[in-house]
Design a protein around this nucleic acid. Structure first.
Lengths: 132, 132
DNA sequence: ATCAACCTGCAGATAAATCTGCACAATGCG
DNA sequence: CGCATTGTGCAGATTTATCTGCAGGTTGAT
């Protein structure tokens, strides 16, 4: 159930990027023009869902992301990979390559990260079933 | 708007996996119990959106995915990467590593794919802005 | 104190996603 | 043919996502 709608996501992004904001600031930073009540409607939903907490300061509230950005990303990506790749990663990378989302630099970086990950993975082996 | 809701996605998966199906088969294969009219409601939406086409056979229709599975995946993944990684791939891979979705084998495979991609990328350079 | 500028809670309106019911048509089997 | 099965179109009910309006409170400058 930790799924964000696109409207909610737009708000979360601002909170992730800027830390703690009050409505006016959120409104100014919001990528598309949004009126105060509409914004508050999203905030209420996010607070209800537990993704955002708020803290009274003077007259107003400061809103803060409760769910860390990295976790949200990881969850959503995990869902996608589970649905489309049965949990494996090959198709994921091939999709990126096909999309040309990966530049030459990205691929070098990817190899570097893969190396890092290999070491990390070796240090704590057995997390996942191996296929061969 | 090539976004699928989760209900639509469940149907698309079946069509991607099995090719061309009629309502009864879809109903049987459906991961969660679904009644005929509910299923048809999704099919209608998917047909309206253009993701599915249908072909009359006798009394009934056969439904077939119009949007290829790979493209849907690529689009959805692209959205996610754009939102969370500003189009770059580092955070994506790190998220996978952190999630332990990547086994040691996966990482080796990843490096292999990265090599393949590098060659492919070199053959048609300049698709994306470089960061340095 | 008064006013403008911001905030709040609450109570919807609108649209889309999800799911249901009803009346009827085509097919196959006795 | 008569009937059960499995379709179909159409017309909504329900829930969630998205957005709006109103009546009023708190703060700070005049």
């Amino acid at each position: 159930m930790s799924q964000f709608t696109s409207g909610e996501l737009r708000v979360m992004q601002l909170l992730w990027e800027h830390g703690e904001l009050k409505p006016g600031e959120l409104q100014e930073l919001h990528p598309v023009p949004i009126k105060n009540p509409a914004l508050r409607s999203y905030l209420k939903i996010l607070v209800d869902k537990g993704h955002v907490s708020r803290r009274r300061v003077g007259k107003a509230f400061f809103y803060k992301a409760n769910t860390p950005r990295q976790r949200a990303f990881s969850t959503m990506l995990g869902d996608l990979v589970r649905i489309f790749c049965a949990g494996s990663v090959d198709e994921l990378v091939m999709a990126l390559v096909r999309k040309e989302k990966l530049s030459e630099d990205d691929l070098l970086e990817l190899k570097r990260l893969a190396d890092l990950g290999s070491e990390a993975g070796s240090r704590k082996r057995g997390a996942r079933e191996k296929k061969s």
